[in-house]
Design a protein around this nucleic acid. Structure first.
Length: 888
DNA sequence: GTCGTATGCGCG
DNA sequence: AAAGCGCGCATACGAC
């Protein structure tokens, strides 16, 4: 074995260094010509003593003679990550900012900071030496090393970006310190490995910064020739637009459109100017018409690529620009590669791109962006387009490696236009009814607020929205920060000089007041407890029980009378507050809608919003509107709303995916599946006087099971949901075990998932792997959580995701059908996971309903057998009061 | 002021 | 120590 490379620092000011005399841990490397350099902050105890006692999962121990930086626990996990990134440990040069161990390993201590200064000369010498040896990539791990290299900003911002380090003559790519991962940042581990992989790629192909040939002040001629050139070359055009921010849903104007044909060349076509000329038009009216024609010409013939096409395509479609050949969406592409990681462009570029972090420019609100210097914003916009080209090839490579091309091309990309149209459609919102609802709720809110305060003697400073206040009222628990506030107040009180009328002092007084003036409902407890509806319910039940038992006391004492009063006070609070919380939620979240000029709400839908494949919704979230509020969503005069609901979609999917004969049989025969389950679970029949309750418990248990619930949890929830069924936990557990013993297919499937995702299975089937599951249509999810978390999530994801894909595909199909039949004038308004809402003229309702049914009940092959999922339909003029619409 | 985190709750 | 999945939004609160 060749002798390891070592380096002795020369130019250190050791004489003046507070750490002088400590063991110097010298840099090291297993090969003479390293290209990758890991830079840590300082040696730890293990490095100093030369011990090698790390214990990271399946890591083999280093040989005893291993010395140098990163040989403790950090070294173990680092070695593993390097391995995953395709870097051999012994080829890496390992160094630290300082050579000696700071006291208590505290890099922030004065001594250590002084040592960094004293070691600076040696550190720089070492960089020069590395330069001479031909090293090309520095990897500073953590903030200390980053700072030593002279790169501004924190590691969380700069990680993954490539920075040129002139004096070294190469680049650096910062990433997290292994100790950060060791402290439990599991979510960051995948990112960490990606950063190291990027370092490896950079060391192989010499990195050069992108050229950035941007035209940010184009003339009409520039636009024309860019478009003609792109069309002639059949370019894939990366596109990104900026808007001036949705102050109101009706005023969101396009300020510029950036277009790029490769990783360096872009044109930015402004429409509204920025900076001191904010909102002035860039073109004359006539020129703007010509420019728009050119852009449309481009969209008519060139393939396009976006980051989050849903946004840009919608914005442009609203303004008459139609993207016809949508080819790629890097956001959806990344979602298909790894659904659990972030998908914002900054993040994607940090993994796949070569442009350093540039997102800081646009800090602040979108509406304010236009006031910034227009050149800066245009360059920013241009970067947003060229980076798409930089990232695409490697992303497509990863997509292929991961094996989710189908998910990306056949499921995600196909949803873009249907969802753009769905957002354009929106849903009519009756603003008068919203106002009425708001008034009613406000009245009740104020009445309850007053009643609560007077009956429980609560001061105005008591805030029902404050969890701290509630914890104090309910449990007598004071927040830890209260002591600090007392101390601050005492200090001011004691000082004669300090005013007691300042805003700060008055704030302190009112912050403390609730804890002084309020008498807790329970005696003091130190433990924090929940104040949610479930907690209140269990307190209520306990209190009611206690009251009842006091009725049977043979000799009630005076203390019992006192207790009775206290319990009654508690029960009264729960009664009033429970309703108050409901009203407060409604008022806060469900009475404010962004209604556009057309009287409709155009909420957003996201394709990449979930890790399972479902859609998510926002602004407003039309997928979680309370049933009772849905009266405000109405059809236009002469129209109706049709809602198609899949019946038991997830349970059917579970039956087919898991291959559970009992459930499949029930579904195929058209028997009510929960009835079958209930009979099986309780070994009873419909004439059981407790049938109704047992039925509800069974439903709760089955749903809970899909979500990976434990026996304890299932029991607790079921009992809370269905009061009055006296079943002990042992009895419940026994029935549960019997039930799943009968559900052999499901149990076996669930066991395979549990063992598969945690890596306990030797030869797993292809639909499950270590930290991975695949749904019925090939959609994959990679899990980043703890083993417990991933087991539960993995039990649900293939089912939820398969169901989601089925509903999404129905929307895609329905959208296509409706495009072919414009005469039906039907609009898809909302998709709520297993339910599709469509609006159309009354006279077309039957035809549209049939079309919906056809699209929703498409056939799918699951586990080799063709299956279809039945839907039920309702019709009405508002989203709440809808009548069943059975088959003619 | 802005940001991240905690708590709670609406829907499927 | 406790453990039910997937979301988005409102409010409070402490840290920067």
């Amino acid at each position: 074995m060749s002798k390891d490379l070592r380096f002795d620092r020369k130019n250190c000011d050791c004489e003046n260094c507070p750490l002088n005399g400590r063991t110097k841990v010298r840099s090291t490397c297993g090969i003479p010509n390293p290209s990758i350099v890991l830079i840590g902050e300082a040696p730890g105890a293990d490095e100093e003593s030369g011990d090698t006692k790390f214990s990271y999962e399946d890591q083999r121990a280093f040989s005893q003679r291993e010395k140098g930086p990163f040989i403790g626990a950090s070294g173990g996990i680092l070695k593993s990550a390097l391995g995953q990134a395709g870097i051999m440990w012994h080829t890496v040069y390992r160094m630290n900012v300082i050579n000696c161990r700071p006291t208590n390993n505290d890099i922030d201590s004065e001594d250590a900071q002084e040592a960094i200064k004293c070691c600076k000369g040696g550190f720089e010498d070492e960089l020069q030496n590395l330069r001479k040896m031909g090293a090309s990539v520095l990897v500073p791990v953590g903030n200390t090393a980053l700072k030593a290299l002279g790169v501004d900003g924190s590691i969380s911002r700069s990680r993954g970006s490539v920075y040129s380090i002139e004096r070294f003559g190469g680049v650096c790519i910062p990433t997290y310190h292994p100790s950060f991962i060791l402290r439990g940042a599991i979510r960051e581990e995948a990112v960490w490995v990606a950063d190291l992989r990027k370092a490896r790629d950079l060391s192989l192909k010499k990195w050069k910064p992108p050229k950035e040939r941007f035209n940010i002040r184009p003339t009409l001629k520039d636009v024309r020739s860019f478009v003609s050139e792109a069309i002639k070359n059949k370019s894939l055009v990366a596109c990104d637009i900026e808007t001036d921010g949705g102050v109101s849903p009706d005023y969101n104007r396009i300020t510029m459109i950036g277009l790029a044909v490769n990783g360096e060349e872009a044109i930015v076509i402004p429409f509204l100017r920025g900076g001191e000329h904010a909102r002035e038009p860039y073109w004359t009216t006539g020129d703007e018409v010509a420019v728009r024609k050119d852009i449309q010409r481009l969209f008519d013939s060139c393939d396009t690529m976006f980051q989050n096409a849903l946004f840009d395509v919608y914005q442009m479609a609203e303004k008459g620009l139609t993207v016809r050949k949508l080819k790629h969406d890097t956001m959806l592409l990344h979602h298909a590669i790894h659904p659990e990681l972030p998908h914002d462009l900054g993040y994607i570029v940090s993994i796949y791109g070569s442009t350093p972090y540039w997102k800081d420019v646009t800090k602040g609100s979108k509406a304010r962006m236009i006031e910034q210097d227009e050149d800066i914003i245009r360059i920013y916009n241009a970067r947003d387009t060229v980076v798409l080209h930089q990232c695409l090839p490697d992303m497509l490579k990863d997509l292929k490696d991961v094996g989710t091309e189908k998910q990306y091309f056949d499921w995600s990309m196909k949803l873009v236009w249907p969802l753009v149209r769905m957002k354009m459609n929106g849903i009519k919102c009756d603003s008068k009814q919203v106002a009425k609802l708001k008034r009613t709720l406000e009245k009740e809110y104020h009445e309850l607020d007053e009643l609560l305060r007077s009956e429980l003697d609560l001061p105005a400073s008591f805030n029902f929205d404050s969890n701290f206040h509630l914890q104090y009222l309910l449990y007598g628990k004071k927040p830890p920060s209260l002591a600090k506030k007392y101390a601050e107040k005492d200090e001011i009180d004691a000082s004669e000089k300090r005013s007691k009328t300042t805003k700060k002092y008055l704030e302190l007084v009112s912050a403390i007041e609730p804890y002084e003036k309020v008498k807790p409902l329970y005696q003091s407890r130190s433990r924090a407890r929940n104040c949610d509806a479930e907690a209140l319910l269990s307190i209520q039940q306990a209190a009611a029980g206690r009251l009842e038992s006091m009725d049977y006391l043979k000799r009630p004492a005076a203390q019992h009378a006192v207790e009775r009063v206290a319990i009654e006070r508690l029960l009264r609070f729960i009664e009033l507050y429970s309703r108050f919380a409901e009203v407060s939620k409604m008022l806060g979240t469900y009475t404010n809608y962004p209604i556009a000029k057309d009287g409709r709400v155009h909420g957003d839908f996201k394709i990449h919003g979930t890790a399972t494949g479902r859609l998510s919704a926002s602004n407003p979230n039309l997928q979680n509107q309370p049933k009772s509020v849905r009266v405000i969503f109405v059809s236009e005069p002469g129209n109706v709303l049709i809602e198609g609901d899949y019946s038991n979609l997830e349970l059917r999917v579970m039956a087919y995916v898991a291959g559970e004969p009992i459930l499949i049989d029930a579904f195929e025969k058209g028997v009510k599946v929960h009835k079958v389950n209930c009979k099986l679970f309780w070994e009873t029949d419909e004439d059981d006087p407790l049938w109704e309750k047992k039925y509800r418990v069974t439903k709760s248990v089955v749903f809970g099971t899909v979500y990976g619930g434990t026996a304890q949890g299932l029991y607790k929830r079921a009992m809370a949901e269905v009061p009055g069924l006296n079943v002990s936990f042992p009895t419940f557990e026994k029935r549960l075990n019997n039930f799943f013993a009968r559900m052999e297919g499901y149990s076996k499937w669930a066991q395979t998932i549990r063992e598969g995702v945690t890596g306990k299975l030797k030869n797993p089937p292809d639909w499950v792997g270590y930290r991975m599951t695949k749904n019925a249509f090939g959609r994959k999810r990679f899990y980043l959580g703890s083993p417990d978390e991933i087991e539960r999530a993995a039990l649900d994801t293939p089912i939820q995701g398969t169901a989601g894909d089925i509903a999404n595909a129905a929307v895609v199909k329905l959208d296509a059908e409706l495009l072919k039949k414009p005469e039906l004038r039907a609009k898809i308004c909302v998709l709520v996971h297993d339910s599709i809402l469509v609006e159309c003229p009354k006279e077309n309702a039957q035809v549209v309903r049939k079309l919906m049914q056809k699209c929703m009940e498409q056939k799918y092959v699951i586990n080799g057998i063709e299956r279809s999922f039945p839907a039920e339909f309702k019709v009405g003029t508002n989203w709440y009061e809808m009548l069943e619409d059975d088959e003619d």
